[in-house]
Simulated assay, not measured.
Amino acid sequence: MAKGVPNKPKGKMSAYAFFVQTCHEEHKMKNPEVPVNFAGFSKKCSERRKTMSSKEKGKFDEMAKADKVRYDREMKDYGPAKGGGGGDDDDEDPNAPNQSPSGFFLFCSEFRPKIKSTNPGLSIGDVAKKLGEMWNNLSDEEQQLYNNKAAKLKEKYEKDVADYKSKGRVDDAKRAAAKATTAAQEKEDEEEEDDDK
């Protein structure tokens, strides 16, 4: 199973990975107490593989092919590979209110364009790092200005969410009532048709 993702199949191994694994197992059998220095061990494995015949390498190629078959079979049964991260974003209502930003986020949205215009060559990560440094260098009073704006936006967001949720329930109630009315009307129409016959 892959790390962090429940029930995800273990990844497929290459022929070289099987070769290194075999070398590691041989090393552990011969020298159980000697720890492995991976950089040096990897270099020795690479040199050893270069001297191997095609027949010897073929054994590891077969192991990799068999593992690929196993991996493909398990992935077919696994499922959630398509569609990206597998989050709940698909279920989100586009009409739902957007989450309110934090004070730091408001600060960033104000200063990011300034940093990008004065330093056009900076990467996204470097801009974020610079913004973090600038935020940390602000006094508590200066940070509080942004946090107060964020608190007001959060209040508005919470009110919008409450309105959104109550509107959704009202809409659901209206929809249910309309459906019941339609069903009653259809039943009445059917009864009238039966009476006419």
Rank of each mutant, 00 (worst) to 15 (best):
E62P: 09
N98C: 12
D93P: 14
G83F: 01
K82E: 07
Y78H: 01
F60R: 02
G83P: 08
G84L: 12
D93M: 10
E74L: 09
N95E: 15
P80G: 02
D89V: 12
P94Q: 01
R70S: 11
P101W: 09
S54W: 00
R49W: 12
K76F: 00
E62D: 15
P80S: 02
P97I: 11
S54T: 08
K76C: 06
R49I: 04
E56H: 09
D72P: 01
P101L: 03
K76E: 11
G79H: 11
T51L: 07
A81R: 14
R49F: 02
E62R: 09
M63R: 04
F60H: 04
C108W: 13
G103D: 07
G103Y: 13
G85C: 08
M75Q: 02
D67S: 06
G103F: 05
R73W: 03
G84F: 09
A81G: 05
G85M: 07
D72G: 09
E110R: 15
M63A: 09
M52C: 05
N95D: 14
Q99V: 13
G83T: 13
L106G: 04
G103H: 11
G87E: 09
P94C: 03
G58H: 12
F105I: 13
S102A: 08
A81N: 03
G103W: 07
Y78E: 01
K65S: 05
S53P: 12
G86Y: 06
G103R: 00
R73Y: 00
Y78V: 07
D90R: 13
Y71L: 10
P80R: 00
K55V: 05
D77Y: 13
G58S: 10
E74Y: 15
T51A: 07
K65E: 07
A64K: 11
N95K: 10
P94E: 09
F107Q: 00
P113F: 12
S100A: 12
K57A: 06
V69E: 15
G79V: 01
G87L: 15
G85P: 02
F105Q: 12
F111W: 14
E74C: 09
K68A: 11
E56P: 06
D93Q: 13
G86Q: 05
E92T: 14
A64Y: 00
K50V: 08
D72H: 11
D93A: 12
K65L: 03
C108F: 12
D67P: 04
F107T: 10
D88L: 15
